[in-house]
């Protein structure tokens, strides 16, 4: 049996500082532009075997399913 996290936001990557509040459970990464946003979130998702979801307004959440 494998034990691990499921359905959990492991990171938030955003270009929009207004979208994330302080005290978030997940680490927040600020990207400088859209290209950086894509690259950063793809890198983090690859490391953690997780999925990138676009929640709009320049924010991606990386979720372990």
């Amino acid at each position: 049996m494998q034990i691990g996290l499921k359905d959990f936001i492991v990171a938030v990557v955003t270009t929009n500082r207004d979208m994330v509040g302080p005290g978030a459970m997940a680490p927040v990464f600020y990207a400088v532009d859209d290209e950086h946003l894509e690259r950063l979130s793809e890198g983090i998702a690859k490391i953690l075997n997780s999925v990138v979801h676009d929640v709009g307004m320049g924010t991606y959440i990386i979720v372990k399913h």
């Binding site: 894509e38 979130s41 793809e42 998702a45 999925v51 990138v52 979801h53 676009d54 929640v55 991606y60 959440i61």
Partner: peptide
């Protein structure tokens, strides 16, 4: 589903 990355 929501697919965030353009290349995917």
């Amino acid at each position: 589903m929501n697919v965030g990355l353009q290349n995917k």
